[in-house]
């Protein structure tokens, strides 16, 4: 991987470099993706189920 070398340090690290905005943004973006996709999955399932029910009612479910 090409990220800079990671090493732990004692204490709280260099305070000036702790860009909390970026960290919060990263986790926020992740959760927007997770929740957004979960909603998408739920909606797609609901639409598909409705279509199947309709098809079964119209065509009797025989294949």
């Amino acid at each position: 991987m090409n990220w800079p070398i990671t090493q732990p340090c004692a204490g709280r690290g260099i305070v000036s470099e702790q860009n909390n905005t970026f960290i919060i943004a990263a986790f926020a973006v992740t959760w927007v993706c997770v929740i957004g996709y979960a909603v998408h999955l739920y909606r797609a399932r609901r639409v598909a189920d409705a279509r199947l029910r309709e098809a079964q009612q119209t065509f009797g479910g025989r294949t």
Binding site: M1, W3, P4, I5, T6, Q7, P8, C9, A10, R12, G13, I14, V15, E17, Q18, N19, N20, F22, I23, A26, F27, T30
Partner: peptide, 21 residues
């Protein structure tokens, strides 16, 4: 659990979402 990184500080935490993705 993880301590801040020597160079990146707490920015290292982004690794826990970036790399798994």
């Amino acid at each position: 659990s993880s301590p801040p990184d020597r160079d990146m500080g707490h920015l290292q935490k982004i690794m826990y979402v970036h790399v798994p993705a």
